[in-house]
Design a binder for these strands. Structure first.
Lengths: 217, 217
DNA sequence: CTACTGACTGACCGGACGGTTAGTCATTCT
DNA sequence: AGAATGACTAACCGTCCGGTCAGTCAGTAG
């Protein structure tokens, strides 16, 4: 905490406002008034609006993504690790909604965001750890040998992100039942991932990329 | 096409610009100059910037989401329908990038978007059709009876959306292999969904929501 | 006391924004 | 011919934005 109190309150106000509506929609006057400080003072502590935003992003990303890396080292089955990972991520996501929103926004607006590179970094780190977890499961024979760990990690991440981003409209969607509650949703996603769509007695279905190529019309 | 040529070109220019950078980051002067029209003329055809945006959204949503509804009626196995659905959606998504981007942005910024309700509508319609497809598979015994069709549809949609939104950074992610190509990605997602993570000979793993509840610390 | 420093402020700047106004011009209706 | 209409424009308006600047004030080192 080498920050002066003023800078601290500016950073906090900015984080809260930026997370709600993004960079463009937040004005410096808003930030200043919420921080209880005059607008010019922001420029005393930060070089520009963009620099402030980047500092906010950096701080939001700092303390993230260590859990998955640590989890890998523990003496558990891969399935058990998966369960704990999902439990942690759904927990953490809502514990720090503003932080999560900030990172997700940058990742999802992948094309143009100012803090994209910062957000991408933690996103990649997280993703790599989860991929390693699935890879371990495959190596141990706990997961099916044809499984692509990258895809599995990506699908899990996508399902989590979509839940967070759309939890408000999820309840308006018919057919989603009680999956609007984080724990219910998490359980169902994990179950679907583990067991897949096909019943045990089903014949195999051949699936390869050629089927998804654009057909000549 | 009862629209005057001027209004048409404004609508087209606006669609292209809004899809790239969103509502706030596009100015009316930009739209006007790209449409080859003076700014005031925009107000001759549209009531306000927001009204123009809503018209753009409405048009983008109009011709969407009929495919899935029609697919349901065809005499095919549910797995086959799933394959065709995914093939179509990955095809269509990139055929109409601007339109897709518009809709996804509104859906993902679920909190605050101006055209959210319009985008939600087509999103829900699409989702319902896919849920029905999975439900049919369960009813027919083609898919596992414990499967939640809502969750399956949601996971599929999430995986597709995440691919579209992050295709640019996907290639920078180690461990994703050739899944940066749409068809490869699609095939791997479908395979993972169909077969799940666990090998056929695996013991069942109990998964329920209680495991994902926040534990007291 | 003086000199200096860093936190902080009110007043201001140029520019871009969304939106308005008065008016031009070609076409069509009577 | 003349009235009316709809497409279109140049010039303009008030507002708010990000950013600047001159200066106040408390603390503190010499």
């Amino acid at each position: 905490m080498s920050l002066p109190a003023g800078a601290r309150s500016i950073l906090d106000a900015a984080a809260s406002l930026f997370s709600r509506t993004g960079f463009d929609a937040v004005s410096l006057s808003e930030i200043a008034s919420r921080a209880g400080v005059c607008k010019a003072n922001i420029f005393h502590h930060f070089d520009s609006k963009e620099a402030l935003y980047l500092d906010v992003m950096r701080e939001a990303c700092k303390c993230h993504a260590e859990f998955a890396e640590q989890l890998l080292l523990e003496p558990l089955s891969s399935t058990e690790k998966l369960l704990r990972l999902v439990e942690f991520e759904f927990h953490d996501m809502f514990e720090n909604e503003a932080r999560t929103q900030l990172i997700f926004r940058e990742v999802l607006n992948a094309g143009s965001g100012k803090g994209r590179e910062i957000a991408e970094n933690i996103f990649q780190r997280n993703c790599n750890a989860v991929i390693a977890l699935f890879q371990e499961g495959v190596d141990r024979g706990e997961f099916r040998s044809e499984l692509d760990p990258g895809i599995a990690a990506w699908m899990l991440g996508a399902s989590e992100m979509m839940f967070f981003q759309n939890r408000n409209i999820l309840s308006h969607m018919p057919g989603m039942g009680n999956a609007t509650v984080p724990a219910e949703y998490a359980a169902k996603v994990v179950k679907t991932l583990l067991y897949g769509l096909l019943p045990d007695n089903a014949d195999g279905v051949a699936v390869d990329a050629a089927q998804f190529q654009r057909k000549p019309t």
